[in-house]
Amino acid sequence: MTEPVLSVRNLQVEFASRRGTLRAIDGVSFDIAKGEVLGVVGESGAGKSVTGLSVIGLIDPPGRIAGGEIHLAGLRIDNLPPEDMRRIRGKRIGMIFQDPLTSLNPLYKVGDQIVETIRTHLNLSERAARRRAIDLLAEVGIPAPEKRIDGYPHEFSGGMRQRVVIALAICAEPELIIADEPTTALDVSVQAQIISLIKRLGRDHGTAVMLVTHDMGVIAETSDRVAVMYAGRVAEIGPVQDVVRNPLHPYAKGLMGAIPTLAGDDKRLVQIPGSMPRLSAIPRGCSFNPRCAPAFDRCRVEKPEPLSRGTQSVACHLYDSVPAETAA
């Protein structure tokens, strides 16, 4: 296999607070290959967004990357000087945020914002950059781009603004796009369009995509692989069909059981009892153990490490037949 575009190893992110250090991300590892879409799913506060932000280097104090490594096509980027990291942002990693209504500066024409970004990263004349901006707007599906380029953000609808945001994220042909809940703020009908746009762009340009969302439907539709996060850790990761059809981790099982089907069997959706722990009160052992029905003694004392099970990888003691003493 060729080198993955993004490789995250044992990432740890901490936030210093008055009550001590809170660990938002605790040992997250995953890879994304060229042209692959990795869906990252989990409840609010599971650490999905923080993972995305640490990859692009936008974790603000009091947060900091406390451990682990992030590699972009072989280059270690988690410890780069700020100026070098800035040059990677927007050029090699594009990012799409949740709310297109607030992502654009309201005082500048969308074209000026695109041209500004293009010229920051590519050595193009004002004119060439503008032509490229028009092409980009056309590519993301904005009608009459040569006219719309001189519009202000407030003159665009939510879906159209998200298209502009996507155009901004891809304007320097990045190898990786991080999409942080790109459809959450949009109408359902627009969501599907945006999702297929991101998917198409990823396919056409061979871009790797990290798609952060809490919407399993979106993941099932777009992603090649999915990572299920819980309380700052990856509970399970694997090809999307396998994880959806045959989830291994009890939490993933609960999540998949909570997806409503159109088939219409009127049984109640499965509910996971309780709620995710706060960062300041993560239980000992497996962080999911208080909500986990099959949890046993070991789950309450020892953190589970990821185990390979076929195409999937799961962090759960249920799948570990080897006694803890001999497991390295």
Binding site: I56, L58, R86, R87, I88, R89, G90, K91, G94, M95, F97, D99, T102, S103, L104, N105, P106, L107, Y108, E116, T117, T120, H121, V165, L168, A169, A172
Partner: peptide
Amino acid sequence: RTDYIRFARARGLSTRAIHFGHALRN
């Protein structure tokens, strides 16, 4: 603290452009 400043940073604009082009005008 606004989203468009965060997005401007994610676009890799220089600190100068963010502070004096985007933030100051707003």
